[in-house]
């Protein structure tokens, strides 16, 4: 399961990921990390069965956790199913169905944003 972590600037210096990994024994995969004066933002991926204890562990350290059911949002009214998103995606989130429409495999998305700029119709956005 993917989750979005928000760190406030007060706790940004602490090795929180390492602490959570040691405490829970769950291997946390970091998909994306950004840090600026407003704090840190991380997207991580953990096995579904371990999600609960990882969330608990982060929350106990003051980290705000949002689970990402749909890391990427396809806006149906805008999408014309061209498929411009397909070949630029590093994790094969998009594919053509037999009827030519484009489908989304949400669990593979790492929120890199490559599809956002590739989409000529402004039909994709990252969920926050």
């Amino acid at each position: 399961m993917k989750m979005l972590l928000h760190f406030n600037p007060q706790i940004i210096k602490k090795p929180l990921i390492a602490e959570v990994v040691l405490e829970t024994g769950v291997l946390v995969n970091i998909n994306k990390a950004t840090i600026d004066t407003a704090g840190g933002k991380l997207i991580i991926n953990v096995p579904d069965k371990d999600a609960k204890k990882v969330i608990k562990s982060f929350k106990s350290r003051g980290v705000d956790v949002v689970t990402l059911e749909k890391p990427i949002i396809m806006i149906d009214e805008e999408c014309v199913h061209c498929g411009a998103c397909i070949s630029v995606c590093p994790t094969n989130v998009f594919k053509y169905e037999a009827d030519g429409s484009v489908s989304v495999d949400y669990k593979e998305c790492i929120q890199c944003g490559a599809c956002i700029t590739a989409c000529p119709h402004n039909a994709l956005k990252l969920s926050e």
């Binding site: 199913h81 061209c82 498929g83 070949s87 630029v88 030519g100 429409s101």
Partner: peptide
């Protein structure tokens, strides 16, 4: 890997 800029779905 290939993908299309035009839409086959819409062409249909």
């Amino acid at each position: 890997r290939t993908s299309s800029l035009s839409s086959l779905h819409k062409a249909r």
